[in-house]
């Protein structure tokens, strides 16, 4: 039965941590742990979530958890899986909580390796669209034009140059049994996908958009609003890849205004009309492709 607002457990399993108010990443963890429960082992590579949760002796995960080398989430999960299975604990979930940098950049090799082995692990990427823990630097999932501390927006450099890597499709191209995108702005959709991942007999992957008030330079109380708007503007999308097929979960007839979404965030405050237009063009191109190829 799908978990929803009525059936979700009240028990919190991630608290006492030091994340900023309104942190989308911590919400990604909190919801994941409600679905995966206590019979789980989480892998937390270097990123905001491991930083705010692992400061001995003040431990914040009320399920089993370990940190990991940055590049190695996929491999550490595989090792935990192998060890747990060898010792007779096949019924425990193994998941990771890797950032966008830890997934699309430094951790992409180990992620690829885990999928290639089809190990029964759940790879969750919370995407706050930059290296936040080190002070907001550009990652492979930072949108075009974003101002970060190493892609300044001046007259020479105009923020990040490249669009977000299509990591969901890169993962799907491995032939993974289950992959999905989600957003903390649509929690029931995310919960449903977590349940699917938990039931998946091989590797599963969920890519969750998780706004970061600090890095996005936005008020902490609009995290959910931004996470919804990202989807409603078409800057992000909700989709699944299963049995070799893509599926769009939400296919808006009309997109909400990109400009309004971007203007709420300091990281885009340098943008002018041409920038809005470019992002809209990127969006239209991507949606054109997704609609043509992913819809029946």
């Amino acid at each position: 039965m799908a978990m929803n607002a009525k059936t979700i457990p009240n028990e919190e399993m991630f608290y006492g941590h030091k994340a900023c108010g309104g942190c989308g990443g911590s919400l990604t963890v909190r919801l994941a742990m409600k679905v995966l429960g206590k019979k789980s082992i989480g892998v937390y590579p270097p990123n905001c979530m491991s930083t705010v949760g692992f400061i001995y002796p003040h431990m914040c995960y009320f399920g089993n958890a370990t940190t990991a080398p940055f590049a190695a989430s996929g491999a550490v999960m595989s090792g935990l899986r192998a060890g747990a299975d060898a010792l007779g604990h096949e019924d425990w979930h193994v998941y990771c909580m890797a950032g966008d940098g830890g997934t699309a950049d430094i951790g992409i090799q180990a992620l690829s390796g885990a999928i290639d082995r089809n190990d029964r692990v759940i790879y969750i990427c919370y995407d706050n669209e930059a290296y936040m823990n080190t002070g907001i630097q550009k990652s492979g999932l930072t949108p075009t034009g974003t101002r970060t501390t190493n892609t300044p927006a001046g007259s020479n450099i105009h923020g990040a140059i490249q669009p977000k890597k299509r990591i969901f499709e890169i993962v799907a191209a491995h032939g993974i049994p289950y992959a999905a995108t989600a957003s903390v702005g649509y929690p029931e959709d995310y919960l449903r996908k977590l349940e699917k991942a938990a039931a998946c007999p091989g590797t599963s992957f969920i890519h969750v958009l998780a706004p970061c008030p600090t890095g996005w330079q936005a008020p902490s109380e609009i995290t959910i609003e931004l996470a919804k708007e990202a989807v409603d503007t078409g800057m992000w999308f909700l989709a699944e890849y299963e049995n070799g097929q893509y599926h769009l979960n939400k296919n808006p007839k009309e997109f909400a205004s990109i400009e309004a979404y971007l203007k709420k965030q300091g990281r885009f405050s340098h943008m002018v009309q041409a920038d809005f237009d470019e992002l809209a063009a990127q969006r239209d191109e991507q949606w054109g492709r997704m609609r043509a190829e992913w819809c029946d």
């Binding site: 370990t66 990991a68 080398p69 190695a72 491999a75 595989s78 090792g79 060890g83 604990h89 390796g113």
Partner: peptide
């Protein structure tokens, strides 16, 4: 890197 990371995981349980 993944070989030893995997053992880090396995040894961790």
């Amino acid at each position: 890197h993944s070989a030893l990371s995997a053992l880090f995981g396995a040894s961790g349980v």
